[in-house]
Design a binder for these strands. Sequence first.
DNA 1: ATAATAAATAAACACCGTGTTGTTTATTAC
DNA 2: GTAATAAACAACACGGTGTTTATTTATTAT
Lengths: 205, 205
Amino acid sequence: MTDSNIDLRVIRTKESIRDALIKLIDEKGFEAITVKDITTKAKINRGTFYAHYQDKFDLMKKCEEEIMLELSSIVKTKFPSVMASLKTESAAVQPFPHTVSVFEYLNENSDIMRAVLGPKGDLSFQVRLKEFMWETLYGDNPFAFVKEESLLVPGQYLSSYLGNAMLGVVQQWLNSGRKESPQEMARILTTITANGPLFAAGIKK
Amino acid sequence: MTDSNIDLRVIRTKESIRDALIKLIDEKGFEAITVKDITTKAKINRGTFYAHYQDKFDLMKKCEEEIMLELSSIVKTKFPSVMASLKTESAAVQPFPHTVSVFEYLNENSDIMRAVLGPKGDLSFQVRLKEFMWETLYGDNPFAFVKEESLLVPGQYLSSYLGNAMLGVVQQWLNSGRKESPQEMARILTTITANGPLFAAGIKK
DNA sequence: ATAATAAATAAACACCGTGTTGTTTATTAC
DNA sequence: GTAATAAACAACACGGTGTTTATTTATTAT
């Protein structure tokens, strides 16, 4: 067992498949990709692809599962403390620390993140990511954001509002070239959420 | 010229194609649909389909263009007055009238809206819809929301935040069975936006 | 009503991607 | 070195695509 009982060729093959996938999403969008496209670009035999994955959806799913695991571990380790401070000190103005961590992760993996979250990316992943955010905010966990008695609106809509807003800012950042730093992006997101969009727009005083 | 010089058969054919498309998106998602699926469900010959549309993407595009036109006409007629009142009276608490109109439109066309905006819908349409909202809020038009000098954050991110938040609430409403009335949904959306999500959540006083 | 016309149909076509299978070749672990 | 394993290669039937043909059917204009 040199590395972890895994043949080096497998690693090389899977890496070239993964690289080909990311390039192809950029070029023609996930929808239009064929398995043949992938194997041609990865310079492997088509049969080899089917030895590792069922189809292009299976490949995509396995790439995305890695992302989801890493993202959720970031959130899970840092989110509870954020929620606790929010509830006691009320209305933080500092960027939430877990938000900075998330943007740093997105920044380090920007190639694949831009591919899957971009306009030619994978809708099903975006849906799953939203569901994860929705659950984190509203679902059955002890630190759910939106579980107060004093809600002015139904919690499910507040969760959708916040989750989609945050993801939208992330997508805008990724698609416009990531000119701001993760710290700056976390500040932007926190400012809008803490003060409300109208205040952040300078309309409401 | 009885109606508009168009053969009645064409209308019937196009309607059954459109109905089949909506049903199929519900059943298996846009991505997995084949032209053969559509013609089988619509009970028409496959050649007839190609007499009207290039492929399933062309069909989808033409359905969506109708929606975009109707939606943008609602927004364009009502949005300027909303913006004017917002700027002078500051921070409305009443639902914006154009928001009610949009929800009413979505309610009347809920079958197709749920299909295209749902989790198995068409990503490219959702992207185009967001671009339209982004333009309305931030783009090159006299009533752009996010064009003040006193912005606390870059306008592009504020637009993304708001546009995605609103669309997210709409999708949540459509996917959870439209239990609230359009008026109620407009109130919810306005409340969160005007007061900010943290206030609406009861966290910030 | 009828003739002209437009649309829908059925059948066939080559083309391409799919997913699988059997065989050969290369690499790894022992 | 040898056995085990993975990759490469080639061939296969299958199904959807997009187009074209001749033919039938429905509609329009008169």
